[in-house]
Design a protein around this nucleic acid. Sequence first.
DNA 1: GCTAAATGTTGAT
DNA 2: TCAACCTTTAGCT
Length: 271
Amino acid sequence: MPEGHTLHRLAREQRKLFGGRPVRASSPQGRFAEGAGVIDGRVLRRTEANGKHLLQHYQGGPVLHVHLGLYGSFTTGSGLPPEPKGALRLRLVGENAWTDLRGATACELIEPHEVRALFARLGPDPLRRDADPLAAFGRISRSRTVIAALLMDQQVVAGIGNVYRAELLYRHRMDPYLPGQALSLPAWLAMWNDLVALMRIGVRVGRIETLRPQDRPRKRGPLAPDEARYVYRRAGLPCRICGTEVRTEELVGRNLFWCPYCQPPGSAGLS
DNA sequence: GCTAAATGTTGAT
DNA sequence: TCAACCTTTAGCT
């Protein structure tokens, strides 16, 4: 489930499982055979995530770049890896752990200048220490594009996907169709700080949780997906807070979800 | 059991 | 604007 939190979690996990030791790399599917051959036997020195991109830095210089896209995934386990099945793009095997990559949009070795170019076209990532929310506000406040579209633009903020977008706008009672220009700095900073907190929770628990404690259904056991969110994928269901039907509409190729009562036209956030 | 849609991006048309 | 990527899950039957 790849929004930014997933990639940061993976970077952390892979550092712990494979970092500082040589890894065996292979591409049973064959599509990344050459790259796997380069990595094979090298020490994994460092892993990092920026937005939805994952990088593994290997001894001697090779950098593996992975972007999971819509349905790419890593499956990880301990002990001996299972017999490869299906389209297995990349398998990494360490001392006592293995991980399989499937379905990724990008799995490639890139040069240092390509890493710089990649990072240069990403906006601040709320999960990185060096992230500057004012850089994002600069773009937002100069734009006539609606905030729901700006939030999904990785050049504005790196790592937000459709779930965080919908839930963040809801939590701030913001009209998704508000032009970026209409956001105040305090409203943006409140959203940013909330986003940092939400995404850190996402890294910690491994999924996107956005409900405030008082809004969580009181029930035991795991929550169904539509019970764990305010508006994302809840079209036609009553808003958790006001009971109005949650709406959905396609916006730049993606489904947007919002509550027309809690986020009325012109509503510019809580600050 | 089957089908459609999905948390995303790139590159061709 | 659309296909590709080719997995997973929700929602049917």
